[in-house]
Design a protein around this nucleic acid. Structure first.
Lengths: 208, 208
DNA sequence: GAATGTGAACACATTCACAGCT
DNA sequence: AGCTGTGAATGTGTTCACATTC
């Protein structure tokens, strides 16, 4: 167990390992080696061992890792144990609806418990049992539920305002799907997931 | 202009710069300094200059970069000039529909010209003027249009098969939204965009 | 024998800092 | 005076390789 600084990329991979392990667990596998698991995740086996080593010693020499124990430990590390994280979603277009319909979030311990939109047609309705509120109620609802995590799935023009509103209501971490940079003080975590910039950079690598 | 190896991250940022510059151009701005532009993109100004320096000298000392000239050059570098890239989309669920509706792709020179789904309800219909085919027609349609870029927006169970089918029909680059690793020979470019793993890793950084 | 855990070596990416041009 | 372009320095992340343990 190190006291070195932990790479951000390591944290991302831990989440990846967790997802893979849950698949492995369903197949009743009890032990898995770093090599096997690395192959499943597309990660080098030494990388995997090093990632885990930042947080402790979870393996058994000669046998590999006990799947269910490792799952428990990863959940602890990622703070996904003994707690459901409430999440607020802004923007119930196609992308927002896709996120609401994605079962993986709930399984991982996230509860998208409220959604917001500015379209009067949508306000008051429910999608996947989640109620859609007017964006005007955002502050109120987020405060009431003490929500710490927000997802931005609105058009880029409104994203900065929406993000600001969430943060001022107490949100500490944002997953942003709008193609704009959001800037906040370092106490707010922002992860940008850019659906389009990734596509733009593909042709560069093509021979034809 | 270097002959050094170009970082992958640089390519990603070039796409980001391009998007930002197009916004700047709409505001009739003629010149922009690396500092100004860096601020808009959330990138250090030295980083930006270095990124560009891998490909040539595009700035004017003392004045900055001519916006429209830089746009032209970035498009050339990213192979987005004088050509529309035809794209095939697999999976017309909420996410697939979100991608079909996103105007940014067309503006950037991409044409999602066909979509595939296994749901008989959807086959034959059109979304955003794009025809939805049975997945059985995938090979035929992709070959006919000589499509080189594919987007995977199907459930994780079917993603590997679908990807394999696209590649065997000539697709050379994949943008994959399914939460699984796809593995191909190095002649096929795969970019994974993971909507869920990013969320899983957020709580780690939260104090509460 | 088989697989972990980890310093040390390496590869990759960012930032500094400044010479040189307009 | 202002800003680019770029080697050099630094920082960050990955891979090697092997001692160690079961």
């Amino acid at each position: 167990m190190h006291k070195e600084k932990i790479p951000k990329t390591t944290i991302y991979r831990l989440a990846l390992y967790l997802r893979t392990l849950e698949k492995v667990a369903r197949e009743k596998k009890v032990f898995i080696s770093s090599q096997e698991m690395g192959k499943l995740c597309g990660v080098d086996s030494a990388q995997l061992r090093k990632d885990l080593s930042y947080f402790g010693q979870f393996g058994e020499v000669g046998r590999g890792y006990n799947v269910s124990i490792l799952i428990t430990n990863l959940k602890k590390i990622l703070k996904l144990h003994r707690r459901v994280w409430k999440v607020a979603l802004a923007g119930v277009g196609h992308l927002g609806t896709a996120l609401l319909s994605y079962r993986g979030f709930r399984e991982a311990g996230f509860d998208i418990c409220c959604a917001f939109d500015s379209d009067p047609q949508k306000i008051g309705k429910k999608i996947q049992r989640v109620k859609i509120y007017s964006h005007k109620k955002m502050r109120e609802v987020i405060l009431k539920h003490r929500i710490k995590i927000g997802i931005i799935a609105v058009p880029p023009e409104s994203a900065p305002d929406v993000a600001e509103k969430m943060v001022s209501a107490g949100v500490k971490a944002l997953l942003n799907f709008a193609p704009v940079r959001l800037s906040f003080s370092s106490s707010v975590i922002v992860k940008n997931v850019d659906l389009s910039t990734e596509l733009l950079s593909l042709p560069f690598y093509l021979k034809c």
